[in-house]
Design a protein around this nucleic acid. Structure first.
Lengths: 219, 219
DNA sequence: CGAACTACGACTGTAAACAGTCGACTTATG
DNA sequence: CATAAGTCGACTGTTTACAGTCGTAGTTCG
């Protein structure tokens, strides 16, 4: 957990709360804070060098993101996912992203969407030879872009609320399994489907992509 | 705003934070705290008779639920929805609930689902002659039940995270418009579709229901 | 008269202290 | 020896106090 010790000093652009939030999220989704681990407020606040009050605000947010689960007397621990929960998370993710795909097909300014998606694909191509972490990041960035381009802030926000759970799913299943269907080609198919403007096809492509992703994770 | 003054005394089952959360959520979705209104921490903490620290934890959660928007220097104000945002919220809601409908069709224990849904419909029938607020509550309870019965905790949680925004949408559009398509018959159609076990039909029924609900709100 | 400058007030960000509760360990008691 | 009472320690819930910042109104100087 050495990575957690005072990673907040310097870069004072964001509030301590936001920095703590990022640090904790990273620590959890990277496995540094293992599932099931009990979190002690005084311990964390000391590690992060922030006060408990500030820390607690961050914890409340993580709790709502589903990364932490509350036990008796408010004791927090890192959430542990079983296979059913991973499938459930991916079912919701699929519903959100299929909405994104459908929306993009019906959008007025398709030109901009196409360009942005191709740029995102190119970014994935650059990361294809990178580490597992880099490939995961570029994959998530692609899917986040999918949601962002719809212009539906609520959709993007819902997806981002789920992002932590998605990352935990990948972590839980093992990074190797997690990246197994993050190939650039797979994503090219998605972009191609959206490019056709056929909402039904785009939706179907996304759903299949998510199905296979979920299947890879729990198999 | 008199309703906000110390509504927390008594019922000490939940923590002050949770009570404040409920009180604020109700105040916002009931219009007691109007959209665009600036929230001052010291002011609110005095009204609710809780400390700022405790209040801030509740505010962070409301912020993530999309009921509050943060301005410069962390200034919070009650979020204001325009028509596009309402449509966007309902698009996400439709995606979540159509997933629920599909899932319920493919569930093993259909018997329990059917019974629970009919019970929910009956509850709506009892509230049909009640006040606008009661009808809205029973409607939301029906849709929440839809999500809960899937057994997908993530889906339920995502829906509940959106519930505040849904309530704001209804508020914003005016309660009369909001309840216009909350008839018991409309919901019977949904239950009937799920009863058939035809996932495609159930999804289609929900989507139409949501489309018409959204159309009513913004028209 | 107007522009810059200063002093004040209003809030949020952050920290530190206080209070209450549950569990574990110890001790007394039959 | 087993059980019940009591004590200690560890945490969370909550409050109070302090620091920093931005806007604003009033004031001075050109």
């Amino acid at each position: 957990m050495a990575g957690l010790t005072a990673p907040l000093l310097g870069l004072q652009k964001k509030s301590l709360r936001e920095q703590a939030l990022s640090a904790l999220r990273t620590a959890i989704t990277s496995g540094e804070l293992a599932p099931g681990r009990h979190l002690v407020e005084t311990e964390l606040s000391e590690m992060l060098q922030i006060s408990r009050g500030t820390l607690r605000e961050a914890l409340r947010q993580l709790e709502q993101e589903g990364l932490l689960s509350a036990g008796p007397r408010g004791r927090l621990s890192v959430r542990h996912l079983d296979e059913k929960e991973i499938r459930d998370i991916y079912a919701v993710r699929a519903a959100l992203e299929s909405l994104a795909a459908r929306t993009l097909c019906e959008l007025a300014d398709r030109q901009h969407v196409t360009e942005s998606l191709h740029a995102a694909i190119d970014a994935m191509g650059s990361a294809a030879d990178g580490t597992l972490e880099e490939r995961i990041e570029s994959d998530l960035e692609f899917h986040r872009t999918l949601c962002r381009l719809t212009g539906n802030e609520t959709l993007l926000h819902s997806w981002e609320s789920l992002e932590g759970s998605i990352r935990m799913s990948i972590m839980f299943a093992g990074l190797e399994k997690g990246v197994s269907n993050m190939s650039v080609d797979r994503h090219r198919d998605i972009v191609a489907a959206i490019d056709t403007g056929d909402a039904g096809l785009a939706r179907k492509t996304i759903l299949e992509h998510m199905d296979s992703a979920a299947a890879n994770l729990v198999s």
